[in-house]
């Protein structure tokens, strides 16, 4: 039983991992500073640590 659960977990993990590369995240950008033109076709969100 434990073994079965383990395999289920692993396959679920692999499945979600494979899906992840196709995922497009929709993140909020209001009230954040930006560089470039506001309505540009490509929008890059960067999480940065300056140090």
């Amino acid at each position: 039983m434990i073994k079965k659960m383990f395999f289920l977990f692993i396959s679920l993990f692999i499945f979600t991992y494979a899906q992840a590369s196709e995922t497009r995240y929709n993140l909020p950008t209001e009230n954040s500073p930006f560089i470039g033109s506001d309505n540009a076709p490509v929008k890059i969100i960067e999480f940065i640590d300056y140090q």
Partner: peptide, 29 residues
């Protein structure tokens, strides 16, 4: 060549254990 085609939005992610990460983010804001 990418002028006008890219918008770069900045989110701040200062590491807690670095001395100046947070104050640098404050400076940017």
């Amino acid at each position: 060549e990418l002028a006008g085609k890219v918008k770069l939005v900045i989110k701040f992610f200062p590491y807690r254990y670095r001395d100046y990460s947070r104050i640098a983010a404050e400076a940017a804001i």
